[in-house]
Amino acid sequence: MASRPPTPAPEAPAPRPTVLVTGFEPFGAGGDNPSALAALALNDSDIAGHRVVGAVLPTVFGASRAVLEDLVARHRPALVVCCGLAGGRAAISLERIAINVDDARIADNAGAQPVDLPVVAGAPAAYFSTLPIKAMLQSLRSAGIAAEVSQTAGTFVCNHVFYGLMHLLAQPGCRGVRGGLVHVPWLPGQGEPAMPLETTVAGLRIALACALTVRKDLRIAAGALD
Score class of each variant (00 low, 15 high):
146 A>N: 13
118 P>F: 09
211 A>W: 05
132 P>Y: 03
70 D>A: 15
212 L>E: 09
105 R>G: 05
55 A>K: 10
99 I>E: 01
139 S>T: 12
48 A>S: 15
20 L>Y: 01
202 A>L: 10
136 M>R: 11
187 L>K: 02
110 A>G: 09
177 V>K: 10
32 D>F: 12
46 D>F: 12
130 T>M: 11
222 A>M: 06
34 P>I: 08
142 S>P: 04
114 P>H: 06
141 R>I: 10
157 V>W: 00
196 P>H: 04
59 T>E: 03
201 V>R: 01
200 T>P: 05
3 S>Y: 06
183 H>R: 09
187 L>A: 02
195 M>P: 02
222 A>P: 03
103 D>T: 14
198 E>F: 06
114 P>Y: 08
182 V>A: 03
42 L>N: 06
110 A>K: 13
12 A>Q: 11
14 A>I: 11
160 H>E: 06
117 L>W: 04
172 P>C: 13
61 F>V: 13
20 L>R: 00
143 A>M: 11
98 A>Q: 03
56 V>S: 03
49 G>K: 11
223 G>V: 07
109 N>Y: 08
54 G>I: 07
21 V>Y: 00
148 E>T: 14
33 N>M: 07
103 D>A: 13
187 L>R: 02
209 A>L: 07
72 V>Q: 06
93 S>L: 01
92 I>N: 00
43 N>S: 15
127 Y>N: 02
20 L>N: 01
56 V>W: 03
77 P>M: 05
98 A>M: 08
89 R>N: 02
56 V>T: 15
128 F>L: 15
113 Q>S: 13
69 E>K: 12
115 V>H: 09
73 A>T: 14
164 G>K: 02
103 D>C: 15
5 P>T: 03
88 G>C: 13
152 T>S: 15
222 A>H: 03
219 R>L: 11
221 A>V: 09
91 A>K: 02
85 L>K: 01
72 V>T: 12
214 V>M: 06
15 P>V: 11
29 A>M: 07
19 V>T: 14
10 P>M: 04
180 G>Q: 02
179 G>M: 05
177 V>R: 12
107 A>W: 04
224 A>F: 05
9 A>R: 13
222 A>Y: 04
6 P>L: 15
67 V>R: 15
39 A>T: 08
186 W>I: 01
63 A>Q: 14
52 V>Y: 00
83 C>V: 14
170 A>M: 08
140 L>C: 12
147 A>I: 05
170 A>F: 11
123 A>E: 10
184 V>M: 06
13 P>N: 06
25 E>D: 12
6 P>S: 12
212 L>W: 07
203 G>I: 01
92 I>A: 01
220 I>L: 13
4 R>Q: 11
134 K>V: 13
175 R>M: 09
